[in-house]
C-alpha cells in the first residue's frame, strides 16, 4: 500500500463530507469511493478515517444510522445533515479560493 499524501485535517473532513453528500454510506464504502474517484491518488489510512468520521458525527454535520449492509451484517451508515451541507458549501468555497491563490503564486515566472 502506497503511503497516502499528507492531507490537512480540514481537507479530509471536506472530502468525507462531499462523498457522504453523494449518498449515505458506511465507512468502508466511503474509503473505497475516495480511492476510486481519485485514481488511487488519495488514500486515507483507516486509522484516520474513523476518528474523522466520528468527529463529524459529534460535531453534528453528519448523522449515523445502523442498517443491514452487505454480508448481511449491521453497518453504520452516515448521512449528511443540513448543517453539514452548508459546511460542505462553505469549505468547498474556501478550498477553491485557497487553491486559486496557490496556483497563482506557482505561476509566477522564474527570472
Amino acid at each position: 500500500m502506497s503511503k497516502p499524501p499528507d492531507l490537512m485535517q480540514g481537507t479530509l473532513d471536506l472530502l468525507l463530507l462531499k462523498i457522504i453528500a453523494l449518498a449515505p454510506q458506511h465507512g468502508w464504502a466511503i474509503s473505497q469511493r475516495l480511492k476510486q474517484v481519485s485514481s488511487q491518488e488519495l488514500q486515507v489510512s483507516d486509522g484516520s478515517l474513523y476518528p474523522a468520521l466520528h468527529k463529524l458525527e459529534l460535531a453534528g454535520w453528519v448523522t449515523a444510522e445502523w442498517k443491514t449492509g452487505e454480508l448481511g451484517r449491521r453497518a453504520k451508515f452516515y448521512t449528511l445533515t443540513r448543517a453539514g451541507r452548508r459546511r460542505l458549501e462553505h469549505e468547498t468555497e474556501h478550498w477553491r479560493r485557497v487553491s486559486t491563490a496557490i496556483t497563482r503564486v506557482l505561476q509566477l515566472k522564474e527570472v
Binding site: 458506511h26 465507512g27 468502508w28 473505497q32 483507516d46 474513523y50 445502523w66 449492509g69 452487505e70 454480508l71 451484517r73 449491521r74 453497518a75 453504520k76
Partner: peptide, 17 residues
Amino acid sequence: RDLNDELSFHVAMQARA
C-alpha cells in the same frame, strides 16, 4: 459494541475485497 461492530464490518469488507 457499536464501535466493535463498525470496525469488524470494515475488516470483513476489506477481507472480501
